[in-house]
Computed example of a mutant assay.
Amino acid sequence: MNKPTNREVIEQYISAYNSFDVEGMIGLMSEDCVFRNIAGGEMDTETKGIQEFRQLAEQSAGVFSSRCQTVTSYLESESGAEVEIDYKGKLAVDLPNGLKAGDQIQLKGRSKFELLDGKLVLIEDYS
């Protein structure tokens, strides 16, 4: 069986994310993976290791009733890729910042993915 390409792994991850498939996301990640969310130039979230990532993924899945990342550009590197993303989500809960359940969120961002031996070792989301 052929090893999936980096692009295939990234596409599988985004598909799992869009369908709230936490186990599908976890299955693509290395045990010592790192996730970072950078908003407005400031890192506001970081997880280290698959268990911390699982907790964050399960928590964030409960915040949205629907969500969709759409790749608008893809720039491959030797160890992964950087992708431009259009993001749309519908909140399932009220948030402390004043957004309410049912509100729609739309933003543009980019994500950096690094892989090693076919597993995601780093994901950085920028918005």
Rank of each mutant, 00 (worst) to 15 (best):
L122I: 13
D32P: 05
C33V: 14
M29V: 13
I105Q: 06
F53K: 01
L28A: 06
M29P: 02
Y87V: 03
K88M: 12
T45Q: 12
S19V: 10
V22I: 13
S111W: 05
C33G: 08
P4T: 10
D103M: 07
K88L: 12
R54E: 13
E82V: 14
A39M: 12
L122M: 15
I14L: 15
S73T: 05
G49A: 09
G89Y: 09
F35L: 12
T47P: 05
G109Q: 04
E58Q: 09
A101W: 03
M25G: 04
E76F: 00
A57S: 11
R36L: 08
A16V: 09
I10L: 12
A81G: 00
T45I: 13
P96T: 03
P96E: 02
A57D: 02
Y126F: 15
L99C: 03
C33P: 05
K119N: 07
D86M: 13
Q59D: 14
V22C: 08
E58Y: 01
F64T: 01
T70G: 10
S73F: 07
Y13W: 15
K3M: 14
I10V: 15
A61T: 10
V63S: 06
Q55G: 12
L99N: 05
V63T: 11
S60H: 05
L115S: 02
E114I: 02
S66T: 08
L95V: 05
E11R: 08
I85T: 06
D125Y: 00
G40M: 07
L99H: 06
L99M: 15
E46G: 04
L99V: 02
Y74P: 00
P4M: 10
G102A: 08
V22A: 10
Q104T: 14
Y74E: 01
G40T: 09
V22H: 07
E23H: 12
G80H: 00
G24I: 00
A92F: 01
A57P: 01
F20W: 05
E52P: 03
E42A: 11
